[in-house]
Design a binder for these strands. Structure first.
Lengths: 233, 233
DNA sequence: AAGTGGTCTAGACCACACG
DNA sequence: GTGTGGTCTAGACCACTTC
């Protein structure tokens, strides 16, 4: 007997989850068809479908047409990271946000990005160096390249008041992006900028975004010592 | 005129996305009701609902009963990280995986975890130190605490052959978890174990998982120098 | 060829939040 | 109260994949 509503899709999801956790259905085993489950729970197939679709999204079951639904053998451990706008992240900590534009220049595409910004190899990109502060202490150091082929309007922007990140989010929405996280030792420049000792381990995030096939921007964020990126599963 | 099917929910999602990207609907603006859109596209409301629900999940629109649907002002940048089992990650690189159990001991709950493992304060936890190799080179160093209240069967396991991670995934599925990433400098021990020089910046991941309210395990993984965690948006 | 999940419909009622 | 999204139903056809 189920304790939860078996008529709501969330209730059905709970019951299915229970059976998986309690190994009523073993990992790798096939589970009953939607139609059978619908009959068992006394609801429409659509409702069972909704519950199963949700479990499939979280990776707990694998669904294939004709082959049916199976409990995943190695449930991938997925986590949804929410990457906040730095201003909001700082303000959520109850601190005062400020940023300062350290450099703004037109440069040829740096070698590191040749493979990515190939479309605009002949053209300069807009290079920005920004320092983000929380309560007047360095919080993160940002280096950014903006593809002027894709976002020519960026030429008119100084990015002194509103940050490039916020402007781009509103004016050049991306359709996909690559993201990577790493650790690096503070070099002389970085240590000076972030006000820490050289060699300190720093958390870095790199991101490249596209709209369709056209790259928009590349950002590298290096956070001040002690930064942690958190998430829940 | 839409190029995509306006009768499939994905087609409708594309068209809605286009209107948001092209600022037909400005950030913050309210968009037409489901019923109106259904009429416009000549489909059932359910189908529009499916498309809008998908956009809401990715954070592009905000939906509220009675208040309607609005284009998000600051679309949060969400990324789904897939945290692989280390063996699979290494094997996907075309390298040979091996791991070695450095220590296995019963210990009191370490102070760091007092807030988390409170349920079992009187009891010992199982402490495991494991080194993961890729092609015989250190890949990641793992420290783990297992709550024996929640998973008493772990006492019988040596964890020499199959890793604790894989065993737990199959035998103590979790319902939720906290995850964090950070950067740290290699100390003397870590440097020796990972075969790098002291002070090197290392990428670290920490994870605590629960089943219901009972904590299952705490893991701290420190990766060898140069590790990058990648994802797409 | 046939069985399974994927999707769509038309209609209905409900839950919530705003006025 | 009232309008909006949230969900459920019963039925239907479709698309993919394995047999």
């Amino acid at each position: 007997m189920a304790l939860t509503d078996t008529n709501s899709w969330t209730g059905i999801r709970e019951e299915l989850l229970r059976r998986i956790h309690d190994r009523v259905w073993e990992p790798g085993a096939q589970i009953p068809h939607e139609a059978d489950l619908a009959e068992e729970f006394g609801c429409a197939r659509t409702t069972v479908n909704r519950a199963l679709r949700d479990l499939a999204e979280s990776g707990l079951v694998i669904r294939k047409r004709r082959a049916g639904t199976r409990v995943a053998l190695n449930p991938p451990q997925r986590a949804t990271l929410t990457i906040p706008i730095i201003r909001e992240e700082v303000e959520a900590l109850g601190k005062t946000y400020r940023h300062s534009l350290l450099e703004r220049a037109y440069q040829p595409v740096p070698p590191m990005l040749h493979g990515v910004f190939h479309a605009s190899l002949g053209e300069d990109v807009l290079y920005l160096k920004t320092l983000h502060f929380a309560d007047e202490r360095p919080y993160a150091f940002e280096e950014r390249h903006i593809n002027l082929d894709t976002v020519p309007e960026a030429r008119q922007r100084k990015f002194e008041v509103s940050s490039a990140n916020e402007w781009l989010v509103h004016n050049a929405p991306y359709s996909r992006g690559d993201l990577s996280f790493s650790a690096l030792n503070a070099n002389e420049d970085t240590a000076r900028i972030l006000d820490c000792t050289q060699g300190t381990a720093l958390f870095a995030m790199e991101r490249i975004t596209w709209t369709g096939d056209a790259p928009i921007t590349h950002v590298k964020l290096i956070f001040a010592p002690g930064y942690r990126m958190r998430s829940t599963i």
